[in-house]
Simulated scan of single mutants.
Amino acid sequence: MTPAEAEQILADMFAPWVRALDMRVDEIGAEGAILTIPITDDIARVGGIVSGQALATLADTAMVFAAAGHFGEFKPVATTNLDTVFLRPGSGERIACHARVVRAGKAVVFASAEMIAHPSGKPVATATATYMVP
């Protein structure tokens, strides 16, 4: 799957409020996926930092695409658990989320993600998730 194919899936199959984050698929493959979002006023909270809801959505979506990269095709997985740890305020120009599959079975996928602010390169948050594969 190419980044362009992944972005088309994002456009066709994800909710409008997820698409409103203006996510870009920078990389996708068997090793994982990297998705980024611009830091805009629409996702900023008081003080101009990225809201936790936007970061959690970015992480969840990136981990879904990491699973797609792992499987070599998009499978509509169901999030059963999502844990997000916020490390510092997200600020700058973009947030990049590096997601990977930790372990995948036939029915369950475990994934992790790290979110980095750009251009500073500082970690903003981490996340782990469990997905059911229908």
Rank of each mutant, 00 (worst) to 15 (best):
G48P: 00
S112Y: 00
H70R: 14
G32Y: 07
F14D: 00
S51F: 02
A4D: 15
V108P: 02
A54M: 09
G72K: 13
V77E: 05
R103L: 13
F110G: 01
M1H: 11
R103G: 01
P38D: 08
F86C: 11
V109D: 04
K122F: 03
T61S: 08
E5L: 14
E114Q: 15
V50I: 10
G32M: 07
A96I: 00
S120V: 10
P89S: 09
E27R: 10
L87R: 10
I39M: 02
Q8G: 05
V25Q: 01
R100F: 02
M132C: 00
R88G: 09
A129N: 07
E31P: 02
M63L: 10
P123C: 10
G90K: 05
R19V: 13
A6Q: 03
G29D: 06
K75P: 01
G72N: 13
G52M: 12
F110H: 13
H118L: 14
M23I: 03
S91E: 09
G52L: 12
M1R: 06
V133F: 01
V85H: 13
M132R: 09
M115W: 01
R103A: 12
M115H: 02
T130C: 05
I9M: 04
E93V: 07
I34H: 00
D83V: 15
F110K: 02
V109Q: 07
T2H: 05
V25P: 01
R103E: 14
H98T: 04
L58T: 08
T84M: 14
F14G: 00
A30L: 14
M23Y: 01
G69I: 14
R45L: 06
R94L: 04
P76T: 13
G29T: 11
A4R: 15
V85S: 12
V18G: 00
D12H: 11
A129I: 08
G29E: 04
A20L: 07
G47C: 07
N81V: 06
P76W: 12
R94D: 02
L21P: 08
G48S: 00
I28Y: 01
Q53C: 02
L35S: 02
T80G: 13
A68K: 11
S120M: 05
G52S: 11
A56K: 07
M115E: 10
T2G: 12
E114W: 06
T126K: 14
S120W: 04
A117S: 14
P134F: 04
A44L: 08
I9K: 04
D12F: 09
A107Q: 14
F86E: 11
L10W: 07
M1E: 08
G121T: 09
A104H: 13
A4I: 13
P119W: 08
V64E: 04
A54H: 10
T2C: 04
P3D: 05
V133W: 01
